[in-house]
Amino acid sequence: MKYKVTESENISTVFLDGEIDMDVADNVREVVFPLIDSGKEVHLNLKGVQYMDSSGISVIVESNQRAKEKNTKVELKEVSQPVEKVLAMARKFL
């Protein structure tokens, strides 16, 4: 999994690339959580994510919960088709 972070005013955009599974979920948390904790709005750009499992969904849910606690928000941008399919399945549960 690779990533890139861009900054624009009070928005940090994290471009994630590759496959997000249990093995790399903590790496994503290490990138995203400090941005949320700084109070910035965080956009997760998932255009380059070809695969995501339940661990990736958990990172998104945890990020949203964390953002609410910090009075900011997390938004998903340019969700790839494979990720959208998994999100659709997760929405039935969440």
Partner: peptide, 8 residues
């Protein structure tokens, strides 16, 4: 992490 796995 992985909490939705069984559901999937």
């Amino acid at each position: 992490p992985g909490g939705l796995g069984t559901f999937f």
